[in-house]
Design a protein around this nucleic acid. Structure first.
Lengths: 193, 193, 193, 193
DNA sequence: AATGAATGAGGATTCATTCAT
DNA sequence: GATGAATGAATCCTCATTCAT
């Protein structure tokens, strides 16, 4: 029963299905047919809306990064003072929305995608730059010129813990991981005092 | 002209070719034909020796992990005292042998492989456990019961920096990365004092 | 904004777009979507008017043949005497209207279409019969019973020169080609004297 | 039962099957699967040996042109004097080997292929050049400076008659067609006298 | 030991065509 | 009258894997 204005609905369905499929199979070896099926349509329609598999992947990346960005902004909105803001930024990455099994697996595979897709690379680079920039901004009042280095280390730790969770989803909850990053932050603040 | 005793030579050639190919393409989407060609033999022979593509990948993982393990042991052999030993463990991961573009890309893809191959997962888990165990062992005399947490954070940071290098090989040298981990170590030691 | 009486306009637009597309791509591997797009409408509308791709092609053929026929009739209208009439028939095929790159390419592909479509075959056969009949009619007063053979040869030459132009549009202008046919006519007339 | 040295056999089988299929369907809309099936192998093997559909088509063209060229050379070998040689060249194109339904249909489609494939275009151009050159060479002693024009007209007529036969295989035998070209030759010689 | 030959299965992509609005 | 939505059926091409030699 065809209708008008389906495009955004279909696109969103495909993007979400893509993340789920990548998460389920743990790799980008996902067929457009699988994605389309999970999204409840034919693969031909997926091609119609996205033009190609790569474009679907990139849309899924953008969607994920947008979700993450929204979470960060939301957390920052209510945070007061640098310390609270740092905790907000850290917590956002491990919030239930972002720290789901499939999303984590998708992240991992976005790094793989970035190896061959310049646009994917660019998107990840933007994410990293923003994260480091956010952290640096709020570390500066607390740690002065050390802020940049600390931010880089915290960002590295965050991504590393994501990697560990991609390997062992059961072994490390989002709360555990966030606690680890907070502990690292405390240590760095302590050392910078 | 077939020869005897070729097996180990062929296997090694294939394993190294596998790492190079994964590095070159940035993903596990590497054909057995490509690997075999780079190793200078027919794909049929690759199958003869390994029995399947998965087995080739796993052999490449074991090879990489073995190399890494040897580097760690070598560095530990000459290190004296916990602090030196910690620096040795940290440095091993960023030594020129291990911190090469293709090896880093291969590592990333081993995490992907681990999503679908239990054996790959096991190998990576062993690696992580050993790393954390090594770090904990030498952190204990310096930080007591905090050692476990710190080790986990340092391990996470190490893997996270690998991830960053997989994304931007030019932006972060092995030396830079190692310095970051050492800085984190210093901060943790400072805070634990 | 739908209007009434659009049918003939739409049909003509589609038919002309078809010839242009066949000319541009040099083959019948033209999608209905491409044709419809060039004609400024959706492919669904093209189906609405023609019922199928084959019918669009056949309409394009009829259009082309009609144009050609009109050119011939127009040239004959002012020609006086058999010789003038022969030159008129010959010239019509190489007139600027018919001897355009895309029309020539379309002709070639109509021969291909005729291999599988009986209707296309019929249309081309009618064209050939008329051409030979026209030539024979005016050759008779000049060459008597030899007229039929000469007509067949002139017709063959005309189509052969079209073929050569389909291959190398730059190498042979319409004027050159017409001159060749006229030269052949002169030779035949000379020999028949 | 795999054997060694199959490549030339397979290639030839595919090339011949290609001509038959193009002839049977009357167009280049032939699937590699159909060709491979008729040649008695899987389509994967066809790709293995040729690398792509286009390459199969081009090989079929080269095969056809080579066959034609051999026929011409064979006929010229026993011909004495310019007139005999001209008749030999003319006859070769309509000999039973070349003037078969499927070969004629293939020729037609090679012209279509030439619209999009530069290599196909080149091959046809070489064929035309050789034909005209052969004819000119033997016309010169008989017709002097008129030779070039006559050769071009005869070549055009030959290709045109091929086209007519592609349309109506029953209506014009190879013998009829050859007779027409010979008649045109006589007329030109007569007129040039 | 080594490989050329061979294929089945699968996957991205295209497209003619249909249909509800 | 007109179109966006939708898909089934191809089709090209790839690739892991097997096998006879």
């Amino acid at each position: 029963m065809p209708k008008v204005g389906m495009e955004p609905i279909r696109r969103t369905a495909l993007v979400q299905a893509t993340i789920v499929e990548i998460g389920a199979r743990g790799s980008l070896d996902v067929t457009v047919g699988q994605i389309a099926k999970r999204a409840g349509m034919s693969s031909a329609l997926a091609f119609h809306y996205f033009g190609g598999k790569e474009a679907i992947f990139l849309a899924a990346m953008r969607y994920t990064l947008t979700l993450y960005g929204a979470e960060v902004r939301g957390a920052l909105a209510t945070a007061e003072g640098p310390r609270q803001r740092l905790l907000a930024v850290i917590g956002a990455g491990f919030s239930p929305v972002n720290f789901r099994r499939e999303v984590i697996a998708a992240w991992l595979n976005f790094y793989v995608l970035a190896q061959r897709s310049p646009e994917a690379k660019r998107l990840l680079a933007v994410y990293q730059r923003r994260l480091i920039s956010n952290l640096t901004h709020d570390l500066r009042p607390l740690t002065g010129e050390r802020a940049g280095g600390i931010a880089r280390r915290l960002a590295g730790l965050i991504d590393g813990l994501y990697l560990h969770c991609a390997l062992n989803p059961k072994g490390l909850t989002g709360g555990d991981a966030a606690a680890q990053v907070r502990a690292a932050l405390e240590a760095e603040l302590e050392a910078a005092r």
